[in-house]
Amino acid sequence: MDWNWNETRIKLPYTSENFRTLLDTICRGENEFSQYDFAIWCDNLTMAFDDDEGEELNEYDSLVNGIARDIECQWDLYLINTYTLKELQTLDLSQVSLPQEWLLKWLKELNSL
């Protein structure tokens, strides 16, 4: 899968393995990409899973899809609940980070299988 609906600086194929690697990298603080790029990548991953019509997701891919969807939704909610409209209009999204405990929770959930 190498679709690119929304542009992101992360140029990895949309796979569950790459999702795990990216999330783990962020949790360790070793990411060279922004969490904004990761949120976009997560959104693209969920669209890639949705685009695979007729293919039943296995248990792991289904879990990855759910976590990726939660990340991209929580990103939007975090922005809306943290910043004013005026701030959002000029905010450099590449400088925004989700709370670390959220990321660690998602990684723990991912590792539960």
Rank of each mutant, 00 (worst) to 15 (best):
L77I: 10
G66R: 11
V64P: 06
L63W: 05
R69F: 01
V64H: 06
D51I: 00
L63S: 09
Y60W: 13
L85W: 10
L93Q: 15
K86Y: 15
S94L: 05
D76H: 09
C73K: 10
G66P: 05
V96P: 10
L93N: 14
D51L: 04
D92Q: 14
G66V: 04
E53W: 10
Q74I: 01
K86F: 15
D50K: 02
E59G: 03
E56M: 04
N81D: 05
T82Q: 14
I80N: 12
L85G: 09
D52A: 10
Y78E: 09
Y60S: 07
A68L: 05
D70L: 01
S62Q: 13
E87C: 06
D52P: 01
C73L: 13
G66Q: 11
I67G: 01
L88F: 11
I67Q: 01
L85Y: 11
T90A: 04
L88H: 12
S62C: 05
C73P: 02
E59I: 11
V64T: 13
Y78F: 15
D51V: 00
Q89N: 14
R69H: 05
E87K: 13
D76P: 00
Q74R: 08
Y60M: 12
A48M: 07
S62F: 06
Q89H: 12
E53P: 00
S62T: 06
V96G: 05
E56L: 03
F49H: 03
N81M: 02
D50A: 04
T82V: 03
E72K: 07
D50P: 00
D51S: 08
I71W: 09
E72S: 10
N81C: 01
Q89M: 12
G54Q: 01
Q74F: 08
T82R: 11
G66H: 11
D51F: 04
